[in-house]
Design a binder for these strands. Structure first.
Lengths: 340, 340
DNA sequence: AAAAATGACTAAACCGATTTAGCTAAAATA
DNA sequence: TATTTTAGCTAAATCGGTTTAGTCATTTTT
């Protein structure tokens, strides 16, 4: 049973497919098609369960109503939630989204961009891995609408939606300081991204402003392919028995780090918050039910997703629109992991 | 700067686009195009950075190399991980995937199926919500390749990949019994799906086989739009102070329930596993770092995703292929939530 | 020497929509 | 009455590929 096409309807009614197209696109009035014929077309379309072929449409119009989304990993709850918001907002505007996980691998994201371009997506929403500046720049050059999320490249003029990472880390660190913690560590990831630097900068500035000396030994940069062993070693290093300058708190720059970190901390038999206070970026489910529910910096994912889609669609509609750079504030959610 | 098309290449070289198409599809030899011309075409294509328009290709060939994926919610880690595997396996075969979250809403999934059909996806991978039999059956009727995952409808002849839910629940319950628990509750969800019934059946059979009387008061079916309050009430009901027939263990049928349940249990000041032993389906991050790491029934997500794609692609290639129904075994991962 | 095969290529149809330009008859205006 | 408008419609081009059915020399076979 072949699908019904415009032509099928046209032939069965003995009219041109032009007419059918007009009618089904609601342009009957505009093109002065008689009410009588309009009705017939609409009725037959319904009867034959006509579904427009969006591919054909796309070829002709150059618009596919499809967005390409490139994130690090959809299985990571941060991106899962973000993806969900994007999908939802896109759907609200009649757009579909093709999901791609880049695994922080610029080679992969390059391929994915190429693939999505071939698929004629109308635009991109990208959380760019490090070292992917070239690809992003080439998107700009090709005049393809895109929006960066979560990360951005200061040297590239583009749309982006990010959070105020400096401020978030600053507040989190200040919170720890206020509670009397002095030896606050920062566990971060060796993704060479501005946002990660900003997080560490916010942390350092809070220490400075509180007159606490910055100890570079407390800033730990882990490979982003975090291995349990790396984290384990690092945690032991920070709070090990033989360490007479133990850390008394940790600020995790990502939830992936945090989750693995907490696993190690528990395995070491350390108590949160007694032995170690904890704050982390992002708010996965895990943080609400763990030993000591984690105080977090929660990103406004709904807002980020919504904005990303809106900015993108705006750029698609108005290609000459000025780039929008949006920085959102975070929520600080206090739970039990820092004591009180 | 317009994109390069086949025609552009053809014109610049003064050959037909037929020839260019042949060459770029690696059919130069087959169609006896001279090596000389082949080389010229390939070189120019590279120079102009030719990217085939998959939309045009799709229109002509009727194949878009795109899969439509419908799951309940990509922000749910179970589906996130599953989606990830599907994306990966699809990519390995040159397929893209459009993600749709149905929120367990059959109306929504119906719309999404229609939308994806219009987009001419080559096939579907669907985790069907309850009451969506009609839509699934209509896919069958239209001869559109599809594979169900996680859930299935026994009365519909289709491809599906599921786990042995009965066996999984049976083993989990037996484990609890072996550890001396007698008042084992089952918290499940009012999704009218066979798999949920199978889970509860496995649970009941294990009790029967152990000679433990089944107490229907211990089987709690919660609305799938789980509200914290519902769960809270239910947990209190099961282990409340005034209850002289308290539950001493809970088998959670989904991780979403489990996560919320553990939150409530902790809030009530109950100790896991001392006061209450816990086993749950699925293995989100949360379960590894919570108060007492949770013993779980882990689904082989990698396998499910891989199989789903392979079965689907097979069906796409061989539309007359017989339906495949695959039931996978689960892993039982023992942690601390049941005591020892 | 005629017929068949081979080598190297092309014209044109086709997929299913959108869109531009234009046609005809009837009605309105000059 | 001649001209313009309007109403109601259609033919054909177009998007960018794929694919079928050739064409025309040249070479090989009979």
């Amino acid at each position: 049973m072949k699908k019904t096409s415009l032509n099928d309807i046209a032939q069965q009614l003995g009219v041109s497919k032009t007419l059918v197209s007009f009618v089904l696109n609601g342009k009957g009035k505009e093109f002065r098609i008689s009410d009588d014929i309009c009705k017939k077309v609409i009725d037959l379309a319904k009867e034959l369960n006509y579904q427009p072929n969006r591919i054909a449409q796309g070829l002709r119009t150059g618009k596919t109503n499809t967005i390409g989304l490139i994130i690090a990993d959809i299985a990571n709850q941060f991106f899962g939630k973000l993806g969900r918001e994007i999908e939802q907002e896109a759907a609200r505007h009649g757009y579909r989204v093709i999901f791609c996980s880049s695994d922080e691998n610029p080679e992969k994201s390059k391929q994915q961009i190429a693939m999505l371009q071939q698929s004629q997506v109308d635009g991109f929403i990208i959380s760019p891995p490090m070292n992917s500046e070239e690809q992003i720049r080439s998107l700009s050059k090709s005049n393809i609408p895109y929006v960066l999320i979560d990360r951005y490249f200061p040297e590239i003029e583009s749309n982006y939606i990010v959070i105020d990472n400096f401020d978030a880390a600053y507040r989190a660190t200040s919170h720890l300081l206020k509670l009397g913690r002095k030896r606050i560590a920062n566990l971060t990831v060796n993704l060479d991204l501005v946002i990660m630097k900003e997080r560490t900068e916010g942390y350092k500035q809070a220490l400075r402003d509180a007159g606490v000396e910055i100890d570079e030994n407390l800033v730990k940069v882990l490979p982003f392919t975090h291995d349990n062993k790396d984290i384990d070693r690092t945690i032991k290093d920070l709070v090990g028995k033989r360490n007479n300058k133990k850390a008394d708190a940790i600020l995790f720059s990502t939830s992936k780090l945090g989750i693995m970190g907490i696993e190690c901390i528990s395995a070491l038999g350390l108590k949160i918050p007694e032995d170690l206070a904890i704050v982390s970026f992002d708010d996965p489910d895990a943080y609400r039910i763990c030993v000591s529910p984690v105080t977090v910096i929660n990103q406004p994912l709904k807002e980020i997703g919504k904005m990303a889609v809106q900015v993108l669609l705006n750029k698609i509609k108005h290609p000459i629109a000025k780039n929008q750079t949006i920085t959102l504030k975070t929520d600080f959610i206090i739970r039990k992991s820092c004591g009180s």
